[in-house]
């Protein structure tokens, strides 16, 4: 069964799709022009995902603490075993999360106060192993 990305990461997601990248070895030869190449296969595809963490609290500080806890849960996803994930009807097989990071706003703040709480923007990459 595939896990729904919106359930895991929130509903404010932007999900891109990068195709598999070919890995190649290029070989030059002493004194000669040109390269030979050996195709070594692909490294799997990447889904760059950006989203928003929203946390509430009676004070900004409390809201920010809650946002940090959510961020830690997202960070922990990187250690999960490979699994299948779905997003808007498309299922991506054998994927792992990597490269999680919180993205600062234009004024340099990560946890931006909003009425009733705070938000933080994040990026994470879902890498398909197949």
């Amino acid at each position: 069964m595939a896990y729904d990305l919106q359930t895991l990461l929130g509903s404010e997601l932007t999900v891109g799709l990068n195709n598999r990248r070919m890995q190649r070895q290029y070989l030059g030869f002493a004194g000669a022009h040109g390269l030979a190449t050996i195709a070594l296969g692909t490294r799997g595809f990447e889904l760059p995902i950006s989203g928003v963490i929203r946390a509430t609290g009676t004070t900004y500080e409390q809201a920010r603490n809650n946002a940090v806890m959510i961020a830690q849960n997202l960070e922990a996803l990187q250690a999960a075993e490979a699994a299948d994930y779905s997003y808007k009807g498309t299922t991506y097989l054998n994927c792992i999360f990597e490269n999680f990071r919180l993205v600062p706003s234009a004024n340099g703040r990560i946890f931006v106060p909003v009425p009733g709480g705070c938000l933080a923007r994040f990026e994470i990459t879902l890498r398909g192993l197949v």
Binding site: G31, A32, H33, G34
Partner: peptide, 13 residues
């Protein structure tokens, strides 16, 4: 095969 200096390797390949 060790290519000649200045040679393109295309023919040898």
């Amino acid at each position: 095969y060790a290519p000649v200096p200045g040679e393109s390797i295309a023919a040898a390949a």
